[in-house]
Amino acid sequence: MDILKYAEKAMSMDNETWSRHSNPWSVYTRFTALPLISLAFWSREWFDVYSLVLIALSFLWVWVNPRLFSEPKRTNNWASMGTFGERIYLNRENEVIPIHHIKACRALQVLTAMGLPFFIYGLYALELWILILGNFWVMAFKAWFVDRMVWLYIDMKDSNPIYQSWFKT
């Protein structure tokens, strides 16, 4: 199982949750997750063992975020189409998607992962600039991945009536 499939399973993403997550507010506020996790782990310096509460809350935010907002009335926007593309990408074992999308997504996943050592070391050593670099690196490539998911959705939306039904103007 790839990491995205595992994450989807851990997040308990069903059709209703995906519909809610296609709300642009959900997508854009999701970009706060990594900085909040960073701050929560960094708080061990100030709150010692009580920082575990903030760490738990930051991970709770990751789980709650896709469920927090209502299903959008319109989905003809970058954020919504990014979530649609991700759904298609996660379903690639059941429906063929163009190989150029798979290659690009795998490359972006590798590039994203390359920022994790900076992120982890920055948290471990409490090195602010390394942590900022790790956050920026991971979030920049995640945003690029979402952009690629928009492209995937645009390429695939006419291939399946379900995909077409997600698009609302």
Rank of each mutant, 00 (worst) to 15 (best):
residue 98 P to W: 03
residue 89 Y to R: 03
residue 35 P to T: 09
residue 64 V to P: 01
residue 28 Y to W: 15
residue 17 T to R: 03
residue 101 H to M: 06
residue 101 H to C: 04
residue 18 W to V: 03
residue 37 I to C: 04
residue 101 H to I: 05
residue 52 L to W: 12
residue 109 Q to L: 13
residue 36 L to Y: 04
residue 66 P to Y: 00
residue 69 F to I: 03
residue 36 L to A: 11
residue 53 V to T: 10
residue 64 V to Q: 13
residue 57 L to Y: 06
residue 83 T to W: 01
residue 72 P to Y: 03
residue 16 E to C: 00
residue 96 V to R: 15
residue 21 H to G: 01
residue 29 T to R: 05
residue 59 F to R: 05
residue 75 T to C: 05
residue 99 I to T: 14
residue 11 M to P: 01
residue 62 V to W: 07
residue 55 I to R: 08
residue 22 S to Q: 10
residue 89 Y to D: 02
residue 64 V to I: 15
residue 106 R to P: 02
residue 33 A to Y: 07
residue 24 P to F: 02
residue 22 S to M: 14
residue 50 Y to H: 14
residue 80 S to T: 05
residue 6 Y to C: 06
residue 58 S to D: 07
residue 32 T to L: 14
residue 97 I to R: 02
residue 99 I to Y: 12
residue 107 A to T: 11
residue 66 P to I: 00
residue 82 G to I: 03
residue 89 Y to W: 14
residue 91 N to Y: 11
residue 14 D to Q: 03
residue 52 L to D: 00
residue 4 L to Q: 09
residue 74 R to D: 07
residue 100 H to L: 06
residue 23 N to S: 08
residue 67 R to E: 01
residue 96 V to T: 14
residue 19 S to I: 00
residue 19 S to E: 13
residue 20 R to A: 02
residue 89 Y to T: 03
residue 87 R to G: 04
residue 17 T to G: 01
residue 37 I to Y: 04
residue 50 Y to K: 15
residue 22 S to I: 02
residue 38 S to L: 07
residue 78 W to T: 10
residue 53 V to G: 07
residue 62 V to C: 13
residue 74 R to W: 02
residue 33 A to T: 12
residue 10 A to L: 15
residue 48 D to E: 12
residue 100 H to Q: 14
residue 90 L to T: 04
residue 20 R to P: 02
residue 50 Y to S: 14
residue 69 F to C: 03
residue 71 E to G: 01
residue 92 R to C: 07
residue 14 D to A: 01
residue 54 L to Y: 13
residue 52 L to M: 12
residue 68 L to C: 09
residue 49 V to A: 12
residue 109 Q to K: 12
residue 67 R to P: 02
residue 32 T to I: 06
residue 104 A to H: 11
residue 30 R to A: 11
residue 34 L to S: 13
residue 74 R to K: 12
residue 98 P to Q: 10
residue 11 M to S: 11
residue 17 T to E: 05
residue 44 R to N: 07
residue 44 R to W: 10
